[in-house]
Computed example of a mutant assay.
Amino acid sequence: MTYENKFVKVSVDRGLAVVTIDRAPANAVSLAVYDELRRTFHRLGEDPAMRVAVLTGAGRVFCGGNEVSDFVDLDFDNATEYLAHVRLTFNALYDCPIPIIAAINGGAVGTGIVLASLCDIRIASERAVFALPEIDVGVLGGSRHVMRLAGQGMTRLMMYTGRRIPADQALRAHIVDQVVPPDQVLPTAMALAEEIASKSPPAIRLAKRGLNVTEAMNLKEGYEFECTLTAAVRRTDEAREGALAFLEKRQPAYAVR
């Protein structure tokens, strides 16, 4: 199954969605792209047949950041409205009930690095570069999202300088989780998506919910909340099937919903 917006292309096969930002030449994000991304991830998350999504960019760039021309006449009043669109889109990715894997095929700059940070797992090309260049164009970027991964020092360095960080340095800074040759980015992400999709769909969705919610909790509160999710997953048929399959040394047969 496929469905297309103007700039965000989506293909779906067996509950695995590939979402591609396709806005030549650099996949820069305009208001229209923000809105298409928001609607896409809402739609994927609301579909019970969906199990995992892969987010990538068309061509040689993952996402080149915001459409800079949008900033030229951006004053206080319209900036407030503009940034509301941005926040809603970022929230749609972070809150999407299914795991999202970023297949970072090239530059992830500005909004690009934030979109990657909002995904659950990041696979990057050896040629990928990462930056928060907003300091050079009169705005401030999504550093708080990047800071979840990179920590204070690296985030501040990127924010204050706009410096481009190569993939190997991004890996050391925990901005990405794996670096692979350029031709292996999407295959690696898809193999990981297949592995995740083979698990119990209700358990995966509850696991993501738990990881998102407990991220802001202390240790004891977080584990207590996670225990409530364990109780919830035990109500599902998939939980019993998973345990039986383990005992019987076979692959579980999860129903397609």
Results as ranks from 00 to 15, higher is better:
70 D>K: 04
37 L>V: 07
127 R>V: 09
138 G>W: 09
24 A>C: 06
123 I>A: 05
71 F>Y: 14
84 A>C: 05
158 M>R: 03
174 H>L: 07
182 P>S: 13
236 T>S: 15
102 A>Q: 01
102 A>P: 01
83 L>Q: 14
47 D>R: 13
128 A>F: 13
232 A>E: 15
30 S>D: 12
143 S>F: 14
157 L>V: 12
35 D>W: 01
127 R>F: 10
256 V>G: 02
56 T>W: 11
105 N>Y: 01
52 V>T: 09
207 A>D: 01
106 G>W: 00
40 T>Y: 06
23 R>N: 13
194 E>Y: 02
76 F>L: 13
129 V>W: 03
191 A>D: 13
224 E>A: 12
84 A>T: 11
69 S>T: 11
93 L>C: 01
84 A>H: 12
84 A>Q: 15
219 L>N: 06
90 F>G: 07
137 V>W: 12
66 N>I: 14
35 D>C: 02
44 L>A: 02
199 K>W: 02
170 A>E: 02
248 E>I: 07
195 E>G: 06
106 G>Y: 00
251 Q>T: 10
2 T>N: 08
58 A>Q: 13
205 R>V: 00
246 F>Y: 10
198 S>Y: 02
118 L>C: 14
129 V>I: 15
67 E>A: 15
180 V>E: 05
136 D>M: 10
97 P>C: 00
178 Q>T: 04
102 A>T: 01
182 P>M: 08
243 A>S: 08
43 R>Y: 03
242 G>N: 08
4 E>L: 07
256 V>E: 09
51 R>T: 09
231 A>M: 01
16 L>V: 14
164 R>S: 14
137 V>S: 12
58 A>P: 07
169 Q>I: 12
51 R>P: 09
39 R>F: 08
74 L>I: 10
50 M>Q: 13
58 A>I: 10
79 A>C: 08
21 I>T: 07
213 V>A: 12
117 S>W: 03
153 G>W: 09
129 V>H: 04
101 I>N: 00
57 G>D: 08
43 R>D: 15
156 R>V: 05
145 H>S: 12
48 P>V: 03
7 F>S: 11
50 M>K: 05
244 L>S: 06
257 R>M: 05
243 A>L: 15
110 G>Y: 01
110 G>N: 09
248 E>S: 13
97 P>Y: 00
16 L>D: 03
20 T>H: 05
17 A>D: 11
235 R>T: 14
116 A>K: 06
193 A>P: 04
52 V>Q: 07
144 R>N: 13
237 D>C: 02
200 S>G: 01
71 F>G: 06
125 S>D: 07
191 A>K: 15
85 H>K: 14
116 A>R: 05
61 V>E: 10
108 A>M: 04
4 E>G: 04
